[in-house]
Amino acid sequence: MASDSRSALRFFVLQADLFGSCDTQYSKAEPVHRGEAPLCPRCGSILGMLPWLPPCRAEVELQGQDFGDFVEGPGNEVLISARTADAFRKEALTGLLGFHPVEVVRLKRKRRGAPTSEAPRYFSVTASFGHGAVDEARSRLRHAQPVKCPECRSAGLESIHGFALEAGSWRNEDVFYARGLQGLIVVSERFAGFVQKHGLTNLRLIPTEEYVWDPLRLGPP
């Protein structure tokens, strides 16, 4: 994929570090309260799953040796540790919504032996729907159908072999869903520095130009 000579901005896909030393996962515990699914304001397409409303109760499962600061589960919500939430607010980063306290009703552990620290307090957050849009000309995406809506740019995706954002479309969000790729959490270079500064665990940052998703093994378009 061609590099962007017009901009030095870098972006990353944010994912949990599965099978890592701090691999932690969660599931929602009943009763689960849900709101209305987010919709594109222009075409009405559904952009995400039904939001998880407070009070939030969860079961947390420790797969690794210690609890992670970032925890994925079902839906668009992720859990972040209290120290992550505090630092995010203090450093005035943007793009995370909610910050609802989570009551952990059950802790499960796959490995033998006690973790090296107690489970942190967790908060439920979601990434905002940002204005940054995928640049089709500079991305390697295979669509199942043509992109019709210029606002959300939703279309069935079959594979991703690196992508870039349109120059000038990003509006300084640090954590967001990009228009045209609503299923991936994208973060800014500033957020990448924030992760390194605080040593946050159980997450991976993949440069957008290197991100590959190809479940059907179709190869690049």
Rank of each mutant, 00 (worst) to 15 (best):
S3E: 13
S3P: 03
D4H: 09
S5W: 09
S7W: 09
F11G: 02
F12T: 09
V13N: 02
L14N: 03
Q15P: 00
A16V: 09
A16K: 14
A16G: 13
F19H: 09
D23Y: 13
T24F: 04
Y26Q: 01
A29Q: 12
V32E: 06
E36T: 15
E36K: 12
C40L: 11
R42W: 08
S45K: 11
S45W: 07
L47D: 04
L47P: 05
G48P: 15
G48N: 14
M49V: 10
W52V: 01
W52H: 04
W52G: 01
L53P: 07
L53M: 15
P55Q: 10
C56A: 15
R57I: 02
Q63A: 11
F67G: 08
G68N: 03
F70V: 09
F70G: 04
F70E: 02
F70K: 03
E72Q: 14
G73R: 03
G73V: 02
A82D: 13
R83L: 04
F88P: 07
R89M: 07
K90Y: 05
K90G: 03
K90M: 11
T94I: 06
T94M: 03
L97I: 01
F99C: 15
V102Q: 01
V104Q: 08
K108H: 06
R109H: 08
R111P: 06
R112D: 10
R112C: 06
R112Y: 06
T116M: 05
T116R: 13
S124G: 14
A127T: 09
S128I: 08
S128K: 05
F129H: 14
H131A: 09
G132V: 14
A137V: 05
R142L: 15
P146Q: 08
P146T: 11
C149T: 06
P150Y: 07
C152V: 12
R153W: 01
A155C: 09
H161N: 04
L165V: 13
E166R: 12
A167I: 10
W170P: 01
R171N: 12
N172P: 03
D174H: 09
F176H: 02
Y177I: 00
A178W: 01
A178D: 02
A178E: 01
R179F: 07
L181G: 02
Q182W: 06
Q182A: 05
S188M: 09
R190Q: 14
R190F: 11
R190L: 13
A192V: 01
F194W: 15
G199Y: 03
L200Q: 05
L203W: 03
R204N: 10
R204E: 09
L205N: 10
Y211A: 01
V212Q: 08
R217A: 14
L218M: 00
P221C: 12
